[in-house]
Amino acid sequence: MHDLMTSGIIIGLALLSLAGTAAAILRLLGKLTGPGPQRLERLLAGVVAAGATGLFLYRAIVVHQGLVPLQSHLDGLLLIGAIFGGLIAYLQSARRLPGVGAFGLPVLTFLLTWALCASAWTYRPFNLDEQTLPTLWKTVHLAGVYLGTLLVAIAAIAGGMFLYARRKLRRRESGGEVTASLERIERIIVRTSALGFGLLTVGLATGVVIMAEGWSRSHLTPTFAVKVGLSVGVWLIYGLLMNVRHTVRFRGPRAAWLSILGLVLLLAVFGVVSAMSRPRNNIENNSPPAQEIKSPATLPAAYGPRGEVTPCV
């Protein structure tokens, strides 16, 4: 359900992440030097990660009052925001991937801004009704989709880093923060995109099972069909990109561009499906809590007797 406190905290976290982004970019460009900005960047990433984790738990315990924390797209975004923020903070403190802040923090800010939209304007709970399919299927589906998206996003960030580092090397620039080596970044692109592709495959496969079950119960909506169609399309394109990347011609910069393209396509699916579906409730209409929405009997008539499965929007 929507919650003013949730939105307020997300705004604060997004602003902190934005400040971290500014510091990281200035440092990357060599406008800020010394350990101070680096410490600030690390601190902000850590605070955002801790804040997102706290908010995720707060929503599970206080808002949803249940043991299933992942009950809406908002929760999913907070989960990947928390993991992603933690990962950035770890990579920065362990100095495993220099320059990650300037590429990772903007994505974290974007995720939090998206979470704010999902909280304040397009809040939509998942249909976790046991009457349709066991919750396990949906949980696997959601985990596959969100973690897959996270890994695809990391691959795209690494792609951006690769292109930037390569450009600097090509231009013989030595100022600013030195990013990780091209070899390391390329390895990250390969590993995360392969793992992300695997998880997206799991998400898609379980989505097909959910879809088949939906057909059998005849409550599929046009939005649902479009989403599945587009997802399969993206999966095919991403799978194709994964394979051509291994050929000689697709090493280096082309692999980096493909990883970015993969994320763009995935976001396009989210965007299209989001545009096609209507939000359940928003801050203004003071909607009922998620538990009430889960029950078909208490759903508003306008949304049908069961409520559509819209896990990825």
């Binding site: 580092a165 090397l169 080596s181 070899e183």
Partner: peptide
């Protein structure tokens, strides 16, 4: 330094 920016190992 430049070699390290291209290669890891």
């Amino acid at each position: 330094d430049f070699a390290r920016r291209i290669f890891e190992d």
